[in-house]
Amino acid sequence: MFRFLNLTLAGISNGMIFAAVALALVLIWRATRIVNFAQGAMLMVTTFIAWDLSQNHGVNYWVCMIVAIVAGLIIGGVSERVLVRPVENGPPINAVIVTLGLFIFLQGLAGAIWGNAQAHSYPPGYSIIGYKVGSRTLLFSPNDLYIVLAVTVMLLALYLLFNRTPVGLRMRASAFNPEVSRLLGVHVGRLLTVGWALAAAVGAVAGLLAAGTQPGYVAPSGYFDALLVYGFTAAVIGGLDSSVGAVIGGLLLGVLLSWADAYIDNNVEGMYALIILIAVLMLRPNGLFARPAARRV
């Protein structure tokens, strides 16, 4: 029983990170109907920037976090404006190819700047030694608590932004009905740029939180690719359209993977994610939280 509780706690902490990545994907999907396959590479680059500052220049953890967020805003905004805008109204496959191209470009760029050979470690925000209950140690550390709180705060901030501010109303309106929004004076194009910037910033936070959980996380490929796969799985479980769905999808995936790793075998984690994804798609093809789509005749 204690083990089960422990595995669940560990799963929740990982799940929150998946949720944040899923949320970044959902933000872009809702705004532009594009799956951003470069999301993993974007947050890899922002994490590398933070790692470089922290490792080579001794910059404070929180300053690194802010720099990563700002770098995310810039990378996301510029990507939309320069690369995605020209293909936004074309066939969806064009946008997919562009994001895949960006993914490969960013991976190559990071390799060229920081090297491919070595994986680096990023310091966690807080201690990774588990809390103690009596004589037993929980698989839940101050750093895990920090991850859960950080993602929760980010979710609340996004919720307030979307539901309580004029910019949020404009963003939702232009996602749901761009033409009507333009007629009402909403500059839809600008808001798409804002949406991508915001998504990449959310990704940047997720990247830093994730990087602190494992030694050797920071490398141009590897962990960050897996993070994108898990984030994508979580987003699809939640229905791609729903931010609540993304969070629940992330938590569900985190906990299920944690159980499967411990009770079955931890060498094939990626396969479990795939099985969960297929199971959800078979039972609920639109994800668990999507509005039922109108039947297209």
Partner: peptide, 29 residues
């Protein structure tokens, strides 16, 4: 996007309601 600033407002057919928003959000927009 700037036509509204010239004082022109457009009423699309009923389908122009943004159904994902509340009544008040539609109005505020």
């Amino acid at each position: 996007e700037d036509v509204v600033q010239a004082g022109i407002a457009h009423v699309p057919e009923g389908r122009g309601v943004i159904t994902e928003l509340t009544v008040e959000e539609n109005l505020r927009l």
